[in-house]
Design a binder for these strands. Structure first.
Length: 556
RNA sequence: GCGCCCAUAGCUCAGUUGGAUAGAGCGUUGGACUACGAAUCCAAAGGUCGCAGGUUCGAAUCCUGCUGGGCGCACCA
């Protein structure tokens, strides 16, 4: 809708320029609004007010000129009004809305999809949790936001690849190996010390050690530590990663690739990356042998070490190699989803992009704020080191995947989230998930009812849609008509939470309409038309729920 | 000390990229089932958009400075 109106306005501007009534150069961007108040029309633009400054004419006068240049036979606009300081309000032709309704019915699951992204290839990296322990609730939020964003971008015409980066090199993994090794030895000798401060204390480490003992007995006790530790580390990481993918699957999140950090080293990508930077003369070496990237000249506040004095690579080294690798795989855009506590890392990552000659804006980082888990109104203490660790899997088990997902998406990703376990578990009107799902189930129920009562459902496609002339019906159709704009907006801004908010409003309008007006009546033609309307609502609710990965049940 | 994020109704939060009278859910109060699902609906009360300046036709939104909260500032990950 907005796009066709934009064309009409651009055309009007062009005509006005050619006949000299408006001295435009260049043509301005056209901004369209859907006014909150229906009295201000179906769509409005502030165009005249924007132009007032440069044209040095009163906005209302410019608006009048513009309206004069809109052709009569545009097929869309019924009438225009100039309002307030210079808004142009457009009232669209009655049958336009019926065409929209027909379009929704025709398109079905495709309604809401667009070519906004023009097929641009996007690499969306998210979760990327270290394989050293189970996912917690914060990971869950990142996972669900990332997954929903992937679905939304896909619907908006981007080619999305979902990737999980595995930190399977470096110190944390060595610590994991040592943790398992100590637990393993303790299974045979309880006197072996277990320094909780230096290793991972979680019970899952014991379980991994027990697994090794059950399968292979005590044979590792006699082997030298240097041999056992890397093996245990790999074994444990593999097992934990399997658990992670399992937990992600339980909450409906999947990945196209798992990208191994270690493979970057094994394929020489890290070294290659450093050589390239060396050629670009972006590196310098300190007295102790450390190798440093001059990020300070590229937007970061200081230079960053790539190779330490002891010869070890820093994580930053493999990270930039990874991102260079992403670009070399041909992606147009990179999106990373990180916990907000990593925000200090963003400038240096973007300076690395610049170091390789890419626009820093090619990499966008979404920082997901922390999640506060509440039970009985009190925060549940989190943290890998604390005893009462609550995993994502436990939360999903407790409240279900639909609820968990919806709760994660109910807030902007950059605001703190209180996850209230008791609220999440209530199957009542306090729980926003059911409100929306109920609307869907309710419509399904009406269709079932219509079938039982013998309404000629095979004639629904020929229903006289012009019988839908109530204000509530008109508003409902308008809301349905804005769905593609909502999806595009969510994709542009990378803000999945817009979908649940849209759903809330749509469900609310549906419930109100349903309560006030009977769908099935003696007037068969009208009943069929109304079935078309609620059928379209059902379809859009279904599509929107699909975008956030929440199920649309036919009965509850 | 420096940097980033946040501050909107009693609570939790939206606010269409600077637009018209600032919205929703929950909670509170009062009402609505002999008809398609009451997990629903209708109505009311509730606001100095943290504070003070600035930018302009117009600011919750943009710029500056404060106040208060969160998080970062490694040759850690």
């Amino acid at each position: 809708m907005k796009t066709t109106l934009t064309e009409i306005l651009t055309d009007a501007l062009e005509r006005a320029r050619q006949d000299g009534s408006l001295l435009l150069d260049p043509l301005p961007d056209i901004q369209l609004d859907v006014p909150k108040d229906p009295r201000f029309g179906d769509v409005a633009t502030n165009l005249a007010m924007v132009l007032a400054g440069s044209l040095k004419q009163p906005p209302r006068q410019i608006a009048a000129v513009l309206i004069d240049h809109i052709p009569e036979a545009n097929g869309l606009i019924d009438r225009c009004e100039i309002a307030g300081p210079g808004f142009i309000n457009f009232f669209l032709k009655e049958d336009y809305w019926l065409r929209i309704l027909q379009e929704i019915l025709d398109q079905g699951e495709a309604y809401g999809r667009s070519q906004r992204g023009k097929g641009a290839a996007v690499l969306l990296e998210f979760v990327s949790a270290n394989p050293t322990g189970p996912l917690h609730i914060g990971h869950g939020r990142g996972a669900v936001v990332g997954d929903a964003l992937a679905r939304i971008l896909d619907a908006a015409g981007y080619k999305v690849t979902r990737e999980f980066y595995i930190n399977d090199a470096g110190r944390q993994l060595r610590v994991l190996g040592r943790s398992v090794w100590l637990r393993y030895r303790r299974l045979f000798d309880s006197l072996v010390p277990f320094p909780e401060e230096e290793v991972y204390p979680g019970d899952y480490v014991i379980e991994i050690a027990e697994g090794i003992r059950d399968r292979e007995g005590d044979r590792y006790l006699s082997l030298p530590e240097e041999e056992v530790l890397p093996h245990f580390a790999d074994l444990a990481a593999g097992e934990i990663l399997q658990g992670i993918t399992h937990d992600l699957k339980e909450i409906g999140v999947h990945f196209d690739h798992f990208y191994s950090e270690r493979s970057l080293y094994e394929q020489g990508k890290v070294r290659e990356c450093i050589e390239v930077l060396e050629e670009k003369e972006l590196l310098f070496h300190e007295e102790n042998g450390a190798c440093v990237l001059r990020t300070s000249g590229l937007g970061d506040d200081k230079d960053r070490v790539l190779i330490k004095g002891n010869g070890d690579y820093t994580y930053f080294a493999s990270d930039i190699a990874y991102h260079r690798e992403k670009m070399e795989r041909g992606f147009d855009r990179l999106i990373n989803i990180w916990g907000a506590d990593h925000h200090g890392y963003v400038p240096r990552m973007q300076s690395a992009m610049r170091a390789f000659g890419y626009d820093a804006r090619t990499l966008q980082v979404l920082l997901i704020q922390m999640v506060n888990l509440l039970r009985e109104g009190k925060p549940v203490r989190m943290g890998k080191r604390s005893g009462e660790f609550v995993t994502l899997a436990e939360v999903v088990e407790e409240v279900g995947a639909d609820v968990a997902r919806y709760f994660f998406l109910l807030r902007r990703y950059d605001s703190h989230l209180d996850f209230d376990l008791d609220l999440a578990k209530t199957q009542s009107n306090e729980n926003p998930v059911y409100y929306v799902q109920y609307a869907h189930a309710r419509i399904c129920s009406v269709f079932k009812q219509a079938e039982e009562k013998g309404f000629p459902l095979d004639r629904v496609a020929q229903a006289p849609l012009d019988r839908l002339n109530l204000p509530e019906e008109r508003e409902l159709i308008k809301l349905l008509g804005s769905f593609p704009d909502v999806v595009e907006g969510a994709a542009d801004a990378m803000e999945p939470h817009r979908i649940p908010f849209y759903l809330q409003e749509l469900a609310s309008r549906l419930h109100a309409y349903y309560f006030k007006h009977r769908i099935l009546s003696e007037d068969v033609e009208k009943s069929l038309a109304r079935l078309c309307l609620i059928g379209a609502v059902r379809s859009v609710i279904h599509n929107a729920l699909q975008l956030v990965g929440v199920s649309a049940p036919e009965s509850m």
